[in-house]
Design a protein around this nucleic acid. Structure first.
Lengths: 144, 144
DNA sequence: GTACCTGCAAACTTTTTGCTACCGA
DNA sequence: TCGGTAGCAAAAAGTTTGCAGGTAC
């Protein structure tokens, strides 16, 4: 949405900015993928070896609670995180390779809003994940 | 889709039907909600006190793998399960009460199929969860 | 008969938390 | 200054697994 970094947004929300939080914020800002906590920890550790896993957990949880990052789950048991302040998109999970493809589909957004209202709700958020296999990678089935 | 019970479908798939599996299948057949493993275990235990939690875990995992039940995740860290052979539906999560409302929206289904194809994928499955608050339960904000 | 299944307990993975020392505003 | 924060290690929560005995087909 804006060009603010995560650090900017932390400060705007009045969070106390420690060295560790700055590093984690930077890691998340730089990420173009959807790292899990272990991965964020690994990247942060390259900058500051002393950072602890518990701090990473506490920090991403905090960032999620104040809406600075989004927590994603792709069903593999680990939570993944991404900067919340990007154009809204959903995810397609490549079942063959595990790759995550992002896409935006305004039609879906509008439809979801409509559905929620029809059910008597105000939509506060949503999650949509598609799971698929590449079209050019489907094995022939019964016919030779 | 059909009127087959879960037990019927297990047999159709050639699964060995033990007493425990029958009980768990029955519990899932009777469930109108989305129980987690602990809850399935509790319900199964009422029928057979000797059943073990490990068996429930193993069985729902098996049922999920062969497509007899669907595994759902609502972000609370536990997996939930429901009979896969019901009219397809998605879920709206009531943020105020924690209730889960099911809905069917063919337009969404069609759109998802289209999106996957546009991205070069064959859609194998999807998950969509809406999160909302009841319209008649929203606090007035700034205007009186 | 035998391959597969179960119960039990131990192990594993991911995430949270109690405590003490420390640091940012 | 001083209340929030970090690190560490222990614990919690959910799930999986090795093993020995049991069971469906």
């Amino acid at each position: 949405m804006t060009d603010d970094t995560i650090i900017d947004r932390c400060e705007a929300k009045g969070l106390r900015m420690t060295g560790q939080r700055r590093i984690i914020a930077q890691v998340l800002d730089d990420a173009r993928d959807h790292p899990d906590v272990e991965e964020i920890y690994a990247r942060a550790s390259k900058i500051d070896t002393a950072i602890s896993l518990a701090t990473v957990y506490r920090t991403v949880k905090l960032f999620d609670e104040v809406g600075i990052v989004d927590r994603l789950e792709f069903g593999d048991g680990r939570a993944r995180y991404e900067d919340a302040d990007r154009d809204h998109h959903d995810h397609l999970f490549d079942l063959r390779t595990g790759a995550v493809i992002e896409f935006v589909e305004p039609e879906i957004e509008a439809l979801q809003e409509k559905i929620a209202q029809k059910l008597g709700y105000r939509l506060m958020g949503h999650k949509m994940e598609l799971f698929g296999v590449p079209l050019d990678d489907i094995k022939p089935e019964k016919d030779a």
